[in-house]
Design a protein around this nucleic acid. Structure first.
Lengths: 152, 152
DNA sequence: ATGGTTTCCCACCCGTTCACTAGGGTTCCC
DNA sequence: GGGAACCCTAGTGAACGGGTGGGAAACCAT
């Protein structure tokens, strides 16, 4: 279960855009510098976000990128889905397309439950929540247990 | 956020072993046939599980594999960690090793919460739970909402 | 209208991981 | 000893992560 580099970079870029949204658009290079992301790689990611309707771009002298919607209305899951496809997949396919047999039959409901759980978090947190450092209460609650911060 | 083929195969093999644990050891090929897994690929996975202490192997005529512990005492997370390393990672590194700056600072607690959530499920479900089709109540509750089964 | 800036789009490259296959070596029981 | 299984190494093809280069299209300012 790994968050890809594309997804991590995309979210960080979106957060940077959410943060500096009053004022002109941000150039790709400025975002790359601020978040320490390879800038040509980031260009491709911003392009995906544009095609996905999350971001608007403007070329030319004082061009750059800006969010297409209010940061409150874009969830972290929205960003990840646009650059990486389905939120959670097993062997590259979405859980409902799987079929198991024998003693593994109850594996499907398990993956479904796992996905529902992940959605609860990533669909429920917006760019505005993260950028303003005010995560929803139920998410914050999970971070209180010190065990959540230890390794395995 | 994808479950790799290795992890999926490993869990299914472990479930097969949990199911047939009274009676001699199972050969790799028998598991491969039962679960439709490429058998040479599975051999490597079973080897990882042996080195991780989840499984015991025996060579020779009536050899094969069997679980090293009771199925109640092996969690799904145990299996995944043995074959795939850390349960959830961002860009290949574990959340606590990450560092974010600027408007992305609250991304770390978000990943931590996500990981805690995933752990809650995968650490809390054992091979015995799945093999007997009796998932814990809190997991089952997540599968009740029909929205959990629809695609995006 | 012209020049400079910046996005946009294409193609390519390299190294690593993933999924999988092949074949020979080693151990075990009968 | 001899078959049957595990064990180990190597190799393949595809995809991913990361990086580079060059050029066309759009925009702004002068």
């Amino acid at each position: 279960m790994r968050i890809s580099a594309r997804a991590d970079y995309a979210v960080r870029a979106a957060l940077q855009l959410a943060h500096a949204r009053d004022g002109g658009p941000l150039k790709a290079e400025a975002i790359a510098d601020a978040q320490d992301i390879p800038h040509k790689f980031l260009e491709g990611i911003l392009n995906d976000m544009r095609r996905g309707g999350l971001v608007l771009s403007q070329r030319g002298g004082k061009g750059g990128y800006r969010l297409a919607k209010a940061p409150e209305e874009i969830s972290i899951a929205d960003v990840i889905r646009v650059v990486d496809g389905p939120l959670v997949s097993v062997r590259g396919v979405r859980p409902p397309e799987l079929s198991y047999s024998g003693p593994a039959e109850s594996l499907l409901p398990l993956w479904i439950a796992l996905r529902a759980n992940v959605r609860q978090i990533l669909d429920g947190v917006s760019l505005a929540d993260v950028a303003s450092a005010e995560l929803p209460g139920e998410v914050l609650a999970l971070t209180r247990d010190p065990a959540s911060w230890t390794n395995p």
